[in-house]
Amino acid sequence: MAVKVMIPTPLRQYAGKQESIQVEGHTVGEALSGLIARYSDLRRHLYNDEGKIRSFVNVYLNDEDIRYLSKEQTPVKENDVLSIVPSIAGGAPSSGAASGSILRCICS
């Protein structure tokens, strides 16, 4: 099965600067393995040391999060689109007192 993998901008530098890449596979896992086989620099951004998809990486099959399908075992069909969506998270330091004094230094 040929599926199209959409690469988000931060990872295009590790994927030949391409916006999308055509890969073969019968499942999401196989398709992603095919992608890594061609662009090995992508591995550390998509997988953790145990070989699982990193928790900061979301994979959508067409419009569905594979977390709520069969994860990497989810079957794919010809012309499906896999989208890699990087989790965007962050926040202020959680230590209240020390950070507050830094803010006063900057703003006074």
Partner: peptide, 25 residues
Amino acid sequence: GYYHSHPDHPARPSEYDREHAWPWY
């Protein structure tokens, strides 16, 4: 890229920001 606010904290990335950040953005 993305924007976010730091309520009552400076406009500097936290360690949590760094851990969750992506290159290029």
